[in-house]
């Protein structure tokens, strides 16, 4: 098992954001975490990457407890977090953003770095074309691509992506998720994906967890969840059931 969360609770100041969350991610899997806005999905990722200290519970990565480790050290352990809202560094170029993505890797030679950046350009041709453009000039989809590519530059064992589809047109969402799948296959990277767009997320993942108001309410293989009528309960209060009959 790569990552395990056991009974984790966390809050922002007075607001309890997640309660007693337990989940597992195995090596090489794509696992998705779905649920409505405010259900606690992003908070779960923040706890794993160390941005938020949990008030209770354990986070175990490759057999090591990390719930008290600093974010910059967690990155070194091999967890790369592509946060919500892309967070491309606006005043740096595409290339510089990618270089910083590899900043945790000690002893990476200049030549290897260039080779890897070239490889990212192959994966994301838009980035290659815009390599010298400043971050803020990119479009939403390009920023999302850059966010993911930058996350990959750390050569993570596990990549966590927070709402890669947010604010993107459906065709681009499709591209992003297909790339995600390719990455997982090609590098054997484990992926933990947080998505609001449930159908899409489930269609590329192996397993999924459903979150509602800070708790995990359902889990199973993606196929099971896709056909589970309760899944849309989490989104529309069960309204679409009537539609599907």
């Amino acid at each position: 098992m790569m990552l395990e969360m056991k009974g984790v609770s966390a809050s922002y100041d007075a607001v309890q954001a997640i309660r007693d969350v337990s989940l597992e991610v195995n090596e090489g899997e794509i696992v998705c975490l779905i649920g409505a806005n405010g259900a606690g999905k992003s908070t779960t990722l923040k706890v794993i990457s160390g941005l938020l200290r949990p008030n209770a519970g354990e986070v175990i990565f490759e057999g090591k407890q990390i719930q008290k480790t600093k974010p910059e050290e967690i990155v070194r352990l091999g967890i790369s977090h592509v946060p919500e809202g892309r967070r491309v560094l606006p005043g740096l170029t595409v290339r510089e953003n990618l270089e910083l993505g590899a900043s945790v890797r000690k002893g990476l030679s200049k030549a290897d770095l260039n080779k890897e950046i070239e490889h990212q350009y192959e994966l994301f041709p838009d980035l290659g074309r815009l390599r010298n453009a400043l971050g803020w000039t990119l479009s939403g989809g390009q920023q999302q691509m850059l966010g993911i590519a930058r996350g990959l530059m750390a050569r993570p064992k596990m990549l966590m992506m927070d709402e890669p589809s947010l604010g993107l047109a459906p065709i681009i969402v499709k591209q992003v998720l297909e790339t995600t799948k390719r990455i997982s296959k090609e590098f054997g990277t484990t992926v933990l994906l947080v998505e609001q767009n449930a159908s899409m997320a489930l269609s590329i993942s192996n397993r999924g967890y459903v979150m509602e108001t800070g708790r995990i309410t359902m889990s199973g293989t993606s196929k099971e969840l896709l056909s589970n009528p309760q899944v849309n309960e989490a989104y529309l209060g069960g309204r679409s059931r009537k539609l599907k009959g």
Binding site: P170, K174, L177, N197, S199, M200, S203, N206, S222, N232
Partner: peptide
């Protein structure tokens, strides 16, 4: 429904 749950446009071959 589509806006909330999303559409299943991604290929489903080996999900």
């Amino acid at each position: 429904v589509e806006a909330y749950l999303g559409t299943k446009e991604v290929s489903e071959d080996d999900a």
